[in-house]
């Protein structure tokens, strides 16, 4: 079971709720994925279409809402969004995203750490989205982050775990759960993250824009389970080191 703050989750797949063609497809895809935690964003009510309300579409008994601060360009904006999210959703959980560069949407490490420090003190359960930087990960952990969420690759690129070496170090060092977020374009990418020992993954686009989002949701759910199972079963070695059959090191000095 995955434990974040004091809440446990059976599923290690977090679902996103953006970019689906309809609420019905989203609901069905999330259901088939098995996700229990879903991210949501905050926006102004569209006064032309006041019935477009995700809270009336998604069952909050079934899904744990994780509001994000998407769109925030600095700590101050993220903190404002955090307060609004708490007021809307009645939840102190927060996926902290601070992305000043609208082109790459890469997270700002300085502002993210600053916002984490403040929001943790205000009582938020902060899950910060971050670049795959091991020292930043430790600094966020020390600041009280409930998880760290390193990106596998730049968001929207579907390239999988490009940051493998760094994510391996992050996983090895972390005391809080590590959730790989962004860049996971295929179930095999999610499985790879889980095999490495990630505690969970967050997937949105790859499911939402698939030819059949419902089937893809299920595929990701299975991949995450398989990857976790493989990690717990302890993978065999890949055999890249020199075979020890003809050692060059002499130990004749030993008594």
């Amino acid at each position: 079971m995955l434990k974040i703050a004091d809440k446990t989750f059976r599923s290690r797949l977090f679902g996103g709720t953006g970019k689906f063609s309809s609420s019905a497809v989203m609901n069905e895809a999330l259901a088939s994925s098995g996700a229990e935690m879903v991210t949501v964003a905050l926006r102004r009510v569209d006064l032309e279409d006041p019935d477009d309300d995700i809270m009336s579409v998604l069952d909050r008994e079934r899904y744990w809402f994780l509001p994000n601060t998407a769109g925030a360009r600095n700590a101050e904006e993220a903190i404002r969004l955090a307060h609004l999210a708490r007021a809307v959703g009645g939840t102190n959980w927060l996926k902290l995203e601070v992305t000043p560069d609208p082109r790459t949407l890469l997270p700002d490490p300085v502002e993210t750490l600053k916002a984490t420090e403040i929001l943790v003190k205000e009582g938020f359960i902060v899950l910060p989205y971050m670049n795959a930087d091991p020292i930043l990960s430790l600094r966020l952990q020390d600041a009280g982050a409930a998880t760290v969420m390193p990106l596998g690759a730049p968001i929207g690129t579907n390239q999988g775990i490009l940051m493998r070496s760094m994510i391996e170090i992050i996983i090895e060092q972390a005391q809080v759960p590590v959730v790989v977020d962004a860049g996971l374009g295929a179930p095999s990418h999610a499985a790879a993250a889980m095999e490495m020992g990630a505690d969970a993954v967050l997937v949105n686009t790859a499911i939402a824009v698939a030819g059949d989002p419902v089937a893809m949701g299920r595929a990701f759910g299975l991949a995450v389970e398989a990857g976790r199972m493989a990690y717990e079963a302890v993978l065999g070695a890949s055999g890249k080191h020199a075979a020890p059959s003809s050692p060059e090191v002499g130990l004749e000095f030993l008594k």
């Binding site: 080191h241 020890p244 050692p247 090191v249 002499g250 130990l251």
Partner: peptide, 11 residues
């Protein structure tokens, strides 16, 4: 298997 361990440790 100390020689094999030595090889890996040295590397």
């Amino acid at each position: 298997m100390l020689p094999a361990l030595a090889l890996r440790s040295a590397a």
